[in-house]
């Protein structure tokens, strides 16, 4: 199975992305709890693209692709915005964050906690891609 949703880079489209993940993941048999985890992880990935890769510029494109093969549910989120190096983002220390009123990096941390696998790729033509994987047991 392969499905794709292309959206413009605005936060009002996050609800559409969540609906797309919910319906597709439910169709292949994931339970509500796991669907909720994937929905949040993908929301965080798209929010990061809108905020950081596209700096809130509203007319750019985000492609969300879902592939489901042999129990592996693979979601890729692709943009052609500003590249970043994920290894430079440490796991957040929540106490320090509060003191300094920092919130950056929370989304990446949640993605790691909620998904079975998270990876970041740079494709040709300067495209960035986050791949989120969940296995259906």
């Amino acid at each position: 199975m392969n499905k794709e949703l292309v959206i413009k880079s605005t936060t009002d489209n996050l609800a559409r992305v969540r609906d797309f993940i919910t319906s597709t993941a439910k169709d292949v048999g994931f339970n509500n709890e796991t669907v909720g985890e994937m929905v949040l992880a993908v929301d965080e990935a798209c929010t990061n693209v809108i905020k950081h890769a596209y700096k809130y510029s509203p007319d750019r494109t985000i492609t969300v692709n879902i592939e489901f093969v042999d129990g592996k549910f693979r979601i890729s989120i692709t943009d052609n915005g500003i590249h970043f190096n994920p290894s430079t983002v440490p796991d957040p220390d929540i106490k320090v964050y509060h003191k300094e009123k920092r919130t950056g990096g929370l989304g990446m941390f949640l993605m790691k906690k909620l998904m079975d696998e998270v990876s970041y790729n740079t494709l040709n033509e300067d495209r960035n891609q986050v791949i989120l994987v969940k296995y259906l047991n």
């Binding site: 996050l14 969540r18 949040l40 929301d43 965080e44 920092r102 919130t103 929370l106 989304g107």
Partner: peptide
């Protein structure tokens, strides 16, 4: 029904 880190960030920004 739902919260993402953008929502949690609001509390972090104002609690102090």
């Amino acid at each position: 029904k739902y919260i993402s880190s953008a929502g949690l960030g609001v509390f972090m920004a104002y609690v102090e």
